[in-house]
Design a protein around this nucleic acid. Structure first.
Lengths: 221, 221
DNA sequence: GTCTATACATAGATAGAC
DNA sequence: GTCTATCTATGTATAGAC
């Protein structure tokens, strides 16, 4: 953790780590900003609305983050950390079925518990990803290459069915993030007011089964 | 075609269908608007940029569509038509494997050939879908119920593996639209400048295999 | 039916008192 | 370090000449 943040130069001026108030305010602002950016996008979001949600005067946001864009980049940095973390369960020594099921579970849990983070990420990519080009073309690219090599190894050893490993990750991302990003569509089509933990447990089961079958694997427990 | 448009009251004043110039201008504006809304979202898009891309003065857009929101709704109406059309291949008399493969193919082809349309739709849902709530909660909901019943029938007859039929559609939508909506991520991770027809053919093959395996089916040809 | 010039509203950013 | 008042830019929409 922290690596991506530093690499992308996305850290707000921390002043040296002195104040407690500072930390609390930063956290409050970042949380409010994540929600507002998720709901209305970068241009749609207004500093006034974020300030309202953070329960702070508008000028304070500019005091801490300077510009709207800086604030946005700080939110993105948080989001990217969350996005990357789960993939570590994919490593050569792991059991394929268990590792892949764990990965799907983690991504679904992230979609359920931090839907705003997922939407901020989706929105950024949807509109060209100008702020995270470096992250995508370097950090994520090499990570995917590394993890795809793990899958290729398993395939070569006959421990899972042959498939395009990179594309396999794309399909997993597509399905898991869909439940966060397109929740409105899912709710309205199912006629539900809210997607519950039970709903997500069911989705997770279905997605896990789909992914494992695609890889020619059976659940390990 | 036209049904959804009418139901949602999304038709711009057609004046009676007189002019040829009118038709050409409307088409030009709608095409430009689809692209700009896709790239920057509703609030991010400006009438000036759309006018530029449509090669018309800004005031003309207001002449034809009144407000930015009306123009946006007209774009959405087009997009929804495209979105719905392919699902008709799912009907009781069809062969399950062939029908599902055809459906995946059509959705992937739509993602490839009309990426802006897919992005406009994704953006609208991502931000709450206020403009298409009626479409989602009535039209799409009943369509999904009808088509899920077809799958449930196939399952009952032992013609495909048991699964949650509605969720099966969600997974298909997630994967197929991903290649349009997240193309930037895919391109940068793969290190490609552009996704070609060949790339899409490969994605389509992988997604089709994943979907058929999930349904316990083998390719029919 | 087309287009230039402009009115009006909103939102990002800052100055300066506290 | 906080906040009110204000500046300035941008973008939607329209008036009115052609």
């Amino acid at each position: 953790m922290g690596d991506v943040v530093r690499k992308l130069h996305l850290v707000p001026n921390d002043g040296g780590g002195a104040g407690r108030v500072r930390r609390a305010n930063l956290a409050q602002i970042l949380k409010a900003a994540e929600q507002v950016f998720a709901e209305t996008g970068f241009t749609g979001a207004t500093m006034a609305e974020i300030a309202d949600k953070a329960d702070l005067p508008k000028a304070n946001l500019h005091y801490y983050f300077g510009t709207k864009e800086e604030l946005y980049r700080a939110v993105l940095a948080n989001v990217l950390e969350m996005w990357l973390a789960p993939i570590s369960v994919i490593h050569p020594e792991a059991d394929p079925a268990k590792a892949i099921a764990d990965y799907v579970y983690s991504k679904m849990e992230a979609a359920r518990s931090r839907p705003f983070a997922s939407k901020v990420f989706a929105n950024e990519i949807l509109h060209g990803g100008a702020q995270i080009e470096g992250f995508l073309s370097h950090d994520l690219k090499s990570l995917v290459e590394e993890k795809a090599a793990v899958l290729d190894g398993w395939i070569a050893e006959g421990r899972m069915a042959p498939l395009d490993a990179k594309n396999f990750f794309f399909m997993i991302w597509a399905m898991t993030q869909h439940y966060a990003d397109f929740d409105v569509q899912i709710r309205l089509v199912l006629g539900k007011r809210q997607l519950t933990r039970r709903d997500f447990a069911n989705f997770t089961e279905e997605v896990t089964r789909a992914v494992l079958r695609t890889a020619g694997l059976s659940p390990s427990d």
